[in-house]
Design a protein around this nucleic acid. Structure first.
Lengths: 344, 344
DNA sequence: CTGAAAGCGCTAACAT
DNA sequence: ATGTTAGCGCTTTCAG
């Protein structure tokens, strides 16, 4: 039923010229090879006949797809849409189309999607699904397809990435808490196979020491994923065990929200009894009760940066900067406050 | 640098058979044409040599891309990620790849992206960007590329879509409010060029009358977009004008959140002074202050349904059901309450 | 059951 | 400045 598309040959025939002439006119790089008068006529016919180049023919010939793949662990995590948006916008501006895959936080699905994208001959890959030790990425490192990581990085400092400076951010948070008089600070850590969670955990301990506070191992809870329920569970454990603390540094906002839930469940007030901090400043954390103190990261900008870096590499600029680390910004809201007089 | 891929011919040469034999083995539909023994040998070589079919060659030949385009108005609106996820998952399961475009709520960008997808020869389109009168969609209606709308529909009942039953949902909300004793109910309506906003507005007036309450035109405020600031502005206008009302039906959650802001700004308490309702039950509206009464829509399921319907159509099932309308579910939280004694 | 041949629509070397 | 030729990797008649 598909009414057959207008081809290059159709246009050529109508003008009684050779297809390659038409091709040359259409390609900016070869456009100068053809006489202006001819070019004019060609453009007119192209316009008139509604000619659209066939991308498959082009790609088959040139091995360039003008498609970039984006791998996301979970698109319903509010962290990722801005990244996708930033990347997609930049990519579209450069004439690239974005293909999206949601790996559902599953390494196996990541592998499969990686494979699919390879088969589809994407010109490059933006990856937000990296685990710290990631065989799939390691395997393709140095392969023929340019890749860049966003948000999460891997166990290899040479791998190009756009991340935020987690150590710096956690440092800011701990200082903020210390300045408010907190000494017993708990940490609800994220899944340690993800770089952000891992770095934040290390940074938490370092920053505590730097603030003259020995981190107490019994105040550190590890979560299996960056999910609200995990945060709720972790904080509940702390509370159930009867640990004493006046603040919780959660590894991200979702975890922090879970902590808030647990606090409410146990009849603790935030920030009067326990202060809580998040990380990411994701949408609407300023609307929750209490509004969350957190670290702001320019996610859309990071998506755009990743896309730009990738494009440079795709376009063969070997001198393109390797990686970018962004300094996040502390946003103080009502979930943190001074330690109550009696609790110091 | 691209090490040249293994082709069908390479495999054929190694086995000393004709490329078409290999092709036949690989294609399920023609697989039966070749002897089992031969097929076995072929599969082995394919495996062994790591052969991957070239999708461009395939598509060039067959005019099938196994790509579906998804058009989204704004991926950072929490409404859409679940839809994308549901669709992408279903599509991936059927061997299709998803290409994503964010039109930024801009009709012009919608047109451009539509065009790009056409050029890319997507096998089908899932569209969440429809405006009620949408020339771009109308133009391609009946064209050669299957399309299905999600969430928002157009001015043409015959157009296949997966939507929720807005009239039913608004009816539930108005009944809920009426049962709580509200008589002066305001409506913060969405952009009237979008079907959801339009239907919700009509349904609001109808439901009010059905509840024996004449809708007061001075209590209806129109917004230009489904954005928080718009909701804030609309509610502020109502309040500034000194209108009297005890409840606001907002056309969606984002607008409702804006209303909540405005109420707080004007020193009104929710729900004691004014009840507020949203629509969508987007993530985290249960965490805001006060937790929002709203309508729940199974967004991910709708994305999946849209994908399934589209696939049927792509695969040439003309008898595929046309459209689906889902009944949403009222979720009562703390943003609605009985009218205060003195205000009735 | 397998081979031969043609061609999808385009680009790029090579010729003129 | 334009035309010629070949071929990207695959599917699909048509023969045998």
């Amino acid at each position: 039923m598909k009414r057959t598309r207008v081809t290059l040959r159709d246009v050529a025939r109508r003008l009684d010229v050779h297809p390659s002439t038409v091709s040359r006119v259409l390609n900016p790089r070869t456009r100068s090879m053809v006489a202006d008068a001819m070019a004019e006529r060609v453009m007119e016919a192209v316009e008139d006949m509604g000619y659209r180049p066939n991308p498959f023919a082009y790609s088959l010939k040139t091995n360039r797809s003008f498609i970039v793949g984006v791998l996301i662990p979970d698109i319903t995590d509010p962290l990722f849409p801005p990244i996708i948006q930033g990347a997609e916008r930049t990519l579209a501006g450069a004439g690239y189309t974005t293909i999206l895959a949601d790996t559902d936080n599953d390494p196996e699905r990541q592998r499969v999607n990686f494979e699919i994208m390879r088969e589809r001959q994407v010109d490059g890959l933006i990856i937000a699904t990296a685990r710290f030790e990631d065989p799939v990425i390691a395997e393709h490192r140095g392969g023929d397809i340019p890749m860049i990581l966003v948000i999460r990085t891997i166990n290899d400092p040479a791998m190009p990435c756009v991340i935020n400076d987690d150590a710096y951010g956690i440092g800011l948070i701990v200082s903020h808490l210390a300045a408010l008089g907190h000494r017993r600070v708990a940490h609800v850590a994220g899944p340690q196979d993800v770089s952000t969670a891992r770095v934040r955990h290390r940074a938490f301990e370092d920053a505590m020491r730097k603030a003259g506070l020995e981190p107490d191992p019994s105040l550190i809870q590890f979560c299996c994923s960056f999910a609200e329920e995990e945060g709720r569970g972790a904080a509940s454990d702390l509370l159930e065990r009867g640990e004493t603390f006046t603040a919780i540094v959660a590894a991200n906002d979702l975890l922090a929200i879970g902590c808030l839930d647990a606090l409410a469940l146990f009849g603790k007030r935030c920030p009067e009894d326990v202060s809580v901090t998040g990380y990411n400043d994701m949408p609407f954390v300023d609307k929750i009760q209490p509004p969350l103190t957190t670290m702001r990261i320019p996610h859309d900008e990071m998506g755009a940066m990743a896309a730009r870096l990738l494009l440079k590499r795709i376009e063969g600029d070997a001198t393109a900067e390797g990686s970018i680390s962004i300094r996040p910004e502390l946003v103080v809201r009502a979930s943190t406050g001074p330690v109550a007089a009696g609790k110091k």
